[in-house]
């Protein structure tokens, strides 16, 4: 079942089209990463999906409900908006109670405490938000998004402003949400994080989705080749030449600057073949580095277009 379906979604501010006819869908229990440079339209999209901004055109269906009935399902979704602020005179727990009441969900202090503990605010739940750091406010934002165990959660930059330890904690939390069947739509600048957490990714560029798929699919589409760096030594120049000639049969971009050899192969299977041939020609291998295109490579290539 689709948790979210977006079709030809467009947002125009005055005459500027910020989001341009994007379409995608999320399956229930999926973690979906939404990437893009600053100004690509990520937050505008998430704001449209959560009812903060009205779309200019296009259709959205959330949890099987048409967009114009979004008020009826707000209890079933959780949202961490970007640039949100809190009530300085209220404690973390008071915020949780307040937001539960606003959402129309019965207040259960024990489950609210659990949420605050899950985001790392267990010891600070009775401190006022006015004394919170940016990171702590972000954690409170994540906790409030999870009030009432929503079926679909929108997280805009959930780990920005968090320290490494807290970011890892939130990453685990998102993972556990997905394992419980919660669908997560998140934006992030941390590509490594997205690569680890997300089942599928969309890369937004100038308001359009340029790439969409699993990491493996994106790699495939990106020309999924392996960069290999070999550290070697050979006592016999003629044998070394034979070895290099054989390598050129399967590899491209062969660059030699002793003691290193750099090359690019299409298949992982070519790598042991290169090593076997080195042994055969009595070329000694001291080290081997293999690099696959990361999400960062894919993203950077997209961004440089």
């Amino acid at each position: 079942m689709e948790a979210l379906t977006v079709h030809q979604l467009t947002k125009t501010f005055k005459s500027k089209e910020v989001v341009k006819q994007i379409s995608f869908s999320l399956k229930t229990g999926e973690v979906f990463g939404f990437l893009g440079r600053n100004g690509a339209g990520k937050s505008t999209t998430i704001n449209m999906l959560t009812g903060i901004l009205p779309p200019t055109s296009g259709t959205i269906e959330i949890l099987g409900t048409p967009y114009h009935q979004i008020n009826s399902i707000k209890r079933r979704i959780g949202v961490l908006p970007d640039n949100s602020n809190y009530y300085n005179d209220m404690t973390a727990m008071q915020h949780m109670i307040f937001f539960s009441q606003v959402k129309g969900i019965p207040v259960r202090k024990d489950s609210l405490s659990e949420l605050l503990e899950a985001v790392g605010l267990g010891e600070d739940m009775d401190r006022k938000a006015g004394q919170f750091s940016l990171g702590m406010k972000k954690k409170l934002g994540i906790a409030q998004a999870l009030i009432g165990s929503p079926e679909l959660v929108f997280l805009d930059e959930p780990t920005s402003t968090l320290d490494i330890e807290s970011a890892l904690q939130i990453r685990d939390l998102i993972g556990s949400l997905a394992s419980k069947g919660t669908t997560v739509f998140m934006t992030s600048h941390n590509l490594d994080e997205v690569e680890r957490i997300c089942d599928r990714i969309a890369i937004l560029h100038q308001g359009r989705i340029e790439k969409l798929g699993t990491i493996a699919e994106l790699r495939e589409a990106h020309n999924n080749r392996f960069k290999v760096k070999v550290k070697y030594r050979s006592g016999d120049k003629s044998r070394e030449t034979i070895w290099l000639e054989r390598i050129r049969q399967v590899a491209d971009d062969v660059k030699r600057s002793e003691p290193f050899l750099e090359l690019v192969v299409d298949s992982e299977e070519d790598i042991p073949w290169i090593v076997d041939n080195a042994v055969e020609q009595q070329v000694k291998i001291f080290g081997l580095e293999i690099e696959q295109p990361s999400l960062e490579n894919i993203f950077l290539e997209q961004a440089q277009r």
């Binding site: 903060i52 949202v79 640039n83 602020n85 937001f99 409030q144």
Partner: peptide, 13 residues
């Protein structure tokens, strides 16, 4: 102005 409104309108009408 204090950027709290989004937290409200994403929870209720």
């Amino acid at each position: 102005e204090l950027q709290r409104i989004r937290l409200l309108i994403t929870k209720t009408s």
